[in-house]
Design a protein around this nucleic acid. Structure first.
Length: 105
DNA sequence: CGAGTGACCGCAA
DNA sequence: ATTGCGGCCACTC
């Protein structure tokens, strides 16, 4: 642990694992909280190569639309969010304005 | 070590 | 409103 394995990934993991059910976060917000607002794509990358145990399904785009590349596609992602109690529109859009979760200060 | 890629974001036409 | 392009950072091979 000379370098905590990139605290960026470390933070992303922590944040995602801390997202309560029924709440969603955007990659940009997540990346910004991790320390790099320009690393939104990295968050997605980490998600893909990262831990399959974390609720990445609660992580969506800033538009409120679900991400792509999710196992099952947007349809599967939508079902996953609905299973968590998140309301998803027929257009695969989540009301981030209401469900967007922010970590405690 | 080097190069390529990425579940994105923002702006411009 | 929609489409197209570039860009930044980090990760993986």
């Amino acid at each position: 642990m000379d370098r905590v394995d990139t605290d960026f990934k470390q933070k992303v993991y922590a944040l995602v694992s801390q997202i309560p059910s029924g709440r969603v976060m955007t990659y940009g917000q997540l990346a910004a909280l991790a320390g790099n607002p320009y690393a939104a794509r990295i968050v997605g990358g980490i998600a893909h190569w990262g831990d399959p145990l974390l609720p990445w399904q609660r992580v969506i785009k800033k538009d409120g639309s679900l991400a792509e590349g999710y196992p099952g596609g947007t349809e599967g992602h939508k079902a996953a969010l609905m299973a968590e109690g998140v309301k998803v529109d027929e257009d695969f859009k989540v009301d981030i304005e209401k469900l967007l979760w922010q970590p405690p200060l």
